[in-house]
Design a protein around this nucleic acid. Structure first.
Length: 290
DNA sequence: AGGCAGGTGGCCA
DNA sequence: TGGCCACCTGCC
């Protein structure tokens, strides 16, 4: 049975708080992190990696990885985008002229945008349609347990798109995916006929990438923006979901604007890191619903 | 018990 | 373009 390494400090260039770590890992960007009360740590899976994270102090995390997978440690630093200057990014947002944004930034000091594997970001957000975070997590966990590689006893990776082509729509429905099963099955089949398509999308400029991504069945504007923001480091992507619509309507008095107009407003108002700003106001709204 | 939830696609004017 | 509706499922 594989074992865990001892807790090792991961120095951070941009400091976290404990609450912000929770919000980053489990606030709707990613769906494969769980808090283990008995270990008082977060355990998560991305790609073929597993890790455990514990908050140490604002400038360090403590990390444990499978003893037989030493490359997990640098992979985690990349996943957390510790190569990026988040403090400078926050300062570049228009908080000086936007009191609501300023308040949201103060509420989640250190909040980051993860760099998830692109293929699994597409998959997870295909599951997200009209579902809440806990239910999306259940769907992802079931897909992983049924179709994904076992990484450690009882811990499974999400299935690759190739693995998904081996599942029938009926089997996917039996995992509780509902009408999303058909979209996932059709997307898997389409991707199988287009080798390298996901890589080309991931590496393309934002507008071009989004245009290609919405050609997948079940991927509309919102899901495309989420996948590009959380899985391809395209921080200009500005997902417009029901929460953001509520925020923009109520706190920016934009009642009556349609999603396309709100999307344009977001990119113009928040600027080239609009998706980063979006994550703060999304998190703030979930904790302080209006 | 019925409506709603980090949406999308199809159909109608 | 803009509005309306079906679509799985589970939870309040």
């Amino acid at each position: 049975m594989a074992d865990w390494t001892s807790w090792t400090p991961l120095p951070l260039t941009t400091s976290f708080t404990e609450q912000t770590l929770a919000e980053t890992l489990n606030g709707g960007q990613a769906f494969r992190w769980n808090f283990l009360p008995e270990e008082s740590c977060w355990q998560g899976v991305w790609g073929q990696y597993v890790a455990r994270i514990r908050f140490s102090d604002k400038n360090h995390l403590l990390v444990a990885t499978p003893a037989n997978a030493p490359d997990t440690f640098p992979a985690l630093a990349a996943y957390l985008r510790d190569d990026f200057d988040w403090d400078a990014a926050v300062d570049s947002l228009p908080w000086r002229s936007d009191g609501h944004l300023a308040k949201s930034l103060r509420a989640f000091p250190g909040l980051r945008i993860l760099r998830q594997p692109f293929a699994e970001a597409v998959l997870c957000f295909l599951c997200s349609a009209t579902k809440q975070i806990p239910q999306i997590k259940v769907m992802c966990e079931r897909m992983a347990a049924t179709l994904g590689n076992e990484l450690m006893p009882g811990i499974h990776a999400l299935p690759t798109w190739e693995q998904l082509t081996n599942a029938s729509e009926t089997q996917l429905r039996s995992l509780g995916l509902g009408f999303r099963a058909k979209n996932i099955k059709k997307s898997a089949d389409l991707l199988a006929t287009q080798p390298g398509l996901l890589e080309r999308i991931e590496n393309a400029p934002y507008e071009e990438a989004k245009q290609m991504l919405v050609s997948l069945p079940g991927v509309g504007e919102k899901i495309a923006d989420c996948a590009l923001l959380f899985g391809a480091a395209k921080l200009e992507a500005f997902p417009v979901d029901t929460w953001i619509i509520k925020v923009l309507e109520k706190r920016y008095t934009l009642e009556g604007w349609n999603p396309a107009q709100l999307s344009r407003f977001g990119r113009v108002h928040y600027g080239p890191l609009a998706g980063f700003a979006q994550q703060f106001i999304f998190s703030y709204e979930r904790q302080h619903p209006t």
